[in-house]
């Protein structure tokens, strides 16, 4: 018996004034998964996530999130979903702890025997590294701190499913590392399902068990970072110096090639290096590949005002 997926999307289509931005998207996310949505600007990442959050009405297709249609889901459903939007700058004059307490209280009626009530504000501030800023005004926070507060508000109700749209933009490396720890913790201990969009490939590789690449309104790749690399031919790069001349070769599986290279009699091989393809290279190759086969619409910046 396969458990019910947390997110189940079939044939999702979206248009803005007649222009297709999402074209026949299929997506399934299971409980406890951390999935990253990657793609160039205007690929439809934010649109996808906003449809799943219930903030945008789709044009076609079936969408089920935690067993309900997000367009019609009620407050009990809201209580199970955490949302961190791309941009907010509200509540600037509130104090950090005060704001977290205010929002946490909204979840109190939805506590059940196996799902405890909201996080106490102090504990959550500790968790996102804002404990020292408890009494600070929200507008006095730096960009990265502000974003961490947004994440804290997103998880204050202990959501079963968390949506994060560009969660780490403006983070310094330390804050970023702490954020990754937090996501691991949520998915490992609380079995929180996470769907995030990001521009940071290293981040996607580090925290997501599965990566989806969205381009031109379609999913062009779906798998772990290693699986995606395997899909692109020439996944590893082998460089060496032979009789003073530098050579480069790429191969999906470098082992047989290197063996044969070293077995060749009478050649002087030095500076041999085998380098696995990075996610960045995979990503660029995949986006380039999908753009070579134009689907419907030209690429470009999509402004969804």
């Amino acid at each position: 018996m396969t458990p019910e997926p947390v997110v189940d999307v079939r044939g999702l289509r979206m248009e803005y004034s007649g222009r297709t931005v999402l074209d026949d998207i299929d997506l399934r996310i299971d409980r406890g998964e951390v999935v990253a949505l990657l793609g160039p600007n205007g690929a439809g990442k934010t649109t996808t996530i906003e449809i799943l959050e219930g903030f945008r009405q789709r044009v076609g297709g079936e969408v089920s999130v935690l067993g309900e249609n997000p367009e019609r889901a009620g407050d009990a459903w809201r209580a199970k979903v955490g949302v961190v939007l791309q941009s907010w700058r509200d509540h600037g004059r509130w104090r950090v702890g005060q704001l977290l307490q205010q929002f946490g209280a909204m979840y109190e009626p939805y506590a059940t025997s196996d799902r405890p009530g909201p996080y106490p504000a102090a504990e959550l501030l500790e968790l996102v590294g804002l404990a020292a800023h408890r009494d600070a005004q929200v507008r006095s926070l730096s960009g990265g701190q502000r974003r961490r507060l947004d994440v804290a508000i997103g998880i204050v109700g202990r959501p079963e499913l968390l949506f994060l749209d560009e969660p780490t933009s403006g983070f310094d490396p330390v804050a970023r590392h702490e954020f990754h720890e937090l996501i691991h913790r949520l998915s490992d201990f609380d079995e929180t399902t996470v769907l995030l969009t990001t521009h940071d490939l290293a981040e996607a590789e580090k925290i997501a068990g599965r990566i989806l690449i969205l381009d031109g309104g379609r999913i062009v790749a779906n798998g772990s970072a290693a699986e995606l690399a395997g899909e692109v031919a020439g996944a590893s790069e082998i460089t060496w110096r032979e009789d003073g001349v530098r050579h480069v070769h790429s191969a999906a599986d470098p082992v047989p090639f290197v063996r044969e290279l070293l077995d060749r009699p009478g050649t002087d091989i030095t500076e041999l290096q085998v380098r696995a393809q990075t996610l960045e290279e995979t990503y660029l190759a995949m986006v380039a590949r999908s753009e070579a086969v134009p689907v419907g619409d030209p690429q470009g910046e999509v402004q969804t005002a």
Binding site: E53, D75, L85, W88, M106, Y107
Partner: peptide, 19 residues
């Protein structure tokens, strides 16, 4: 508050608009 995101933030919370 509609422009700065307060309203949409309220929507992301259970019973947020009522509150």
């Amino acid at each position: 508050e509609r422009e700065d995101g307060t309203l949409i933030r309220s929507r992301s919370l259970p019973n947020g608009l009522r509150a």
